[in-house]
Write a protein that binds this DNA or RNA. Sequence first.
DNA 1: TTGTAGGCGTTATCAC
DNA 2: GTGATAACGCCTACAA
Lengths: 329, 329
Amino acid sequence: MTIYDIAKEAGVSASTVSRVINGKPGIGEKTRKKIQNLLKKYNYILNEAARSLSTSETRLIGILLEDIRNVHHALIAYTLEQALTARGYAGIILNTGPSDSSKEKYVRLLTARNVDGVILVGSTYQNSFMKQLIRSELSEIPVVIANGWINLPNVYGVLVDEEKGMERCADLLFSGGRKHIAFGLAFPTPSNINKLYGYRKSLRTHGIPDSEMIVCEDCISQEDGARAADWILENHPEADGILFGEDLPAIGFIRRMAELGISIPDQIAVTGVNNSSYCTLSHPQLTSLDNRPVEMCEEAVRVLIAVLNGEEPLHRVMLFCDIALRESV
Amino acid sequence: MTIYDIAKEAGVSASTVSRVINGKPGIGEKTRKKIQNLLKKYNYILNEAARSLSTSETRLIGILLEDIRNVHHALIAYTLEQALTARGYAGIILNTGPSDSSKEKYVRLLTARNVDGVILVGSTYQNSFMKQLIRSELSEIPVVIANGWINLPNVYGVLVDEEKGMERCADLLFSGGRKHIAFGLAFPTPSNINKLYGYRKSLRTHGIPDSEMIVCEDCISQEDGARAADWILENHPEADGILFGEDLPAIGFIRRMAELGISIPDQIAVTGVNNSSYCTLSHPQLTSLDNRPVEMCEEAVRVLIAVLNGEEPLHRVMLFCDIALRESV
DNA sequence: TTGTAGGCGTTATCAC
DNA sequence: GTGATAACGCCTACAA
């Protein structure tokens, strides 16, 4: 069923049908009605490929993320999909993994699909390799980075002030009387480095020199968190609080401490980041930095569509975190 | 950069370039080489829209699932994406939610995109409404249901024998000396009904009449699991084992029982389904039915691509579950 | 082995 | 207001 079939049936030309479909002005009211009825009657479905060939836009948006099995990414993917669908776009979600070569491969897939725009999820895409790649492969279309930013004319960043958020987490522990606060760093992505800076800032504010920072690295999985617990007890028995850059290791930490008979939050306060569904699973439930994934995604889509509509939104917008207070503090 | 540009540069016609791009036979070795070099030199990228218009295939696969925020679905989405990408296809993932009207809306989106095939994730799509919808909207393309099946010529089902799996879970508890086993039913989807049947079958095998089945309904979330714990203690204090149809309520159950000072698995054994990442978060860790999501997805993609290649795979294939044994039993 | 010509379904530019 | 007509980029008989 093409617009020609509809046109023939209505006794008009294909152009008229096309105008009706696209809501263009300058059509007689009776013809418009008649055509609309026929479209409905035959359950006409527009051929996007033909439309795309003619207009050279696909209404397809590429979404790159490292791994959707991460619950935080899953929430982001969900929100992006719903927001894009609501505006007539569809997303192609690709799991790139962490390696540069793989990221490049997936960017090429997107260009071959002629996507109208790209959303990169996570600060892991904020680096010089991606900058070069965007320059060479994606310079013609808008690119929005969720929780990151690259200084290029066609790149837009929707950032979350996790540095400030993490500083507030530390402040929260200090105000609760904690004296020796540790930090569990995940992969050293720009985002995680910012969290570390927030931690450091709070320490400095409270008169603690950088040399007394307690940083446990590679805190990503639940097992890493358990390992961190052992490490803290062994090397920093004075610690009475710890901030993790992710929820999962925080959960692992809590679980391990329970096994060792150490009471949380009495002996050590714990916080995570992402305010994910994991937070209510631990005992005690985990206090976590809410980095506003839903708002971030909605803003990312808003910015992207704005650019596609010829507007000129800000290249950087910043959202602010909340702290979801639970029992672990 | 089109095939015409390449053709001009190479001093040949566009059809020759097209043939080279598509690896068709009957091209002189020198011309082929020359053209391949030019393609590389100009970083030629094929216009999928034009190709699609001409061949009426898009290499796009629609993936419908209820909600990717569910970790089990996220794993499935991940696996499907990787399997499709590896074969040159791309997936459009859409979260339909549970309602029929919404499912219909999303099916229409897929037909408008001219997807080559559709994968429906979950037995929630196995019902008469979807059957009618597939008949009217998707009759021209292959549809694969992951963990479900509908009797239509273009529909293929990759099933997991969760009935047998659940029966084995119950058998496991019986063989551990449990006498009064309860069941926590989630939404009454076909899949969950099958799990209930498996539970019933094991009971019958062990000489327990249907009238003595202990079924707690609406066990979906963590809170539901906690509620189930209270319900069991109140109404069936004799229960010494419970099988949940999902992991999350099982986690909630365990947590609530811990609060009440009831020891698991000593006093009550607990199992879940999906063997998800939640299982290692509870204390004790959760024994869960591994319903083979990765294998299921890979088989689903295999079947779909086979149909697209003109083969005639079986309309129903069945996978078998494992039990991931942990501390809760 | 290679070229020509027509067609895929839509939009856009002119005419009328 | 509406209708021809060309164009989008590629594929594929059919011809040569």
